[in-house]
Amino acid sequence: MTRRRAAFGVFRHVVLSAWTLIVLFPVAWMVLTSFKDAGDWVSWPTRWFPFLDFEPTLLNYRQIFYIGGTTASGELRREASEQAYAIWKGVVDSGVIVTIASLASLVLGAALAYAISRFRTGGRNYPYTILTVRMLPPIVIAIPMLIYYTSLPEFFRAVFNVRVAFFDTYHGLILLYIVTTLPYVIWMMLAFIDAVPRELEHAARLMGATRLTTLRVVVFPLVASGMAVTLLFVFILNWSEFLLALTLTQPNVLTLPVLLNKFQSAVEGRLYGPQAAIGTVVTLPVVVFGLLIQKHLVKGFSFGMIRR
């Protein structure tokens, strides 16, 4: 028995290590590329090892973190077309939009999930029908969305006599990101809230707490880890979103995926080095957050589809 268990342990580590290598290979390549100069990005033969095959450089990182745009001396660029190194703008825009959208979506979705769980709000089928929102491919509504967003200001001016823009604004994208991630928030939160015994709420209510207080003091703290998990998932989805941002912003708002896609140069085509450097830099915080809530992640991701 113990020998079989030991054998299983070895087998487990072999398989998991194999997958680890598969996962890490492209990631390592990205990190490696971020330390390469232009001629080493794509090369014959492949340049694998720093110092042996190629001279590692911090040029890419210096380029993307350079504050203030173009350098007059050209020291930090390989050619003039590389001037648009507004990574800070991309980070800030993406950060603001994604954070607000994810949090708002979480609060709205969690509240609705509570209502669904406790009062069957929206009827039995509501959680299912709302999934259709997520199934809509964004390209299907991209152009109508563009028309809609650009004609909304006229509507607001005519009806409310206020000037609001939606196209190329933070809130325009935020609203859309809230809606497109709500279905997942509702599903995930529904699972967590369903698992909270009602007796606790009844007790709180008996002691005179209002419904809102009960929600705030009893329910939400109990599902806090679930909320963190949901937040991470929704954050990742929004953080990666490309098509809608590409269609509905420009030139004032610039999210990271759109910015990354712009990293092309007239001479070299794609600027793999700076792209890899940005990729490395912006992935790290997400990974760290994931690591911090890992314990909850591996428990809370079953969308409530488990008999407890």
């Binding site: 794509v42 090369s43 794609r270 793999y272």
Partner: peptide, 14 residues
């Protein structure tokens, strides 16, 4: 291949 592959391929003497 696009430019990012074609250019270095030529420049690296292939």
């Amino acid at each position: 291949w696009g430019t990012p592959q074609n250019y270095p391929f030529f420049a690296q003497g292939n």
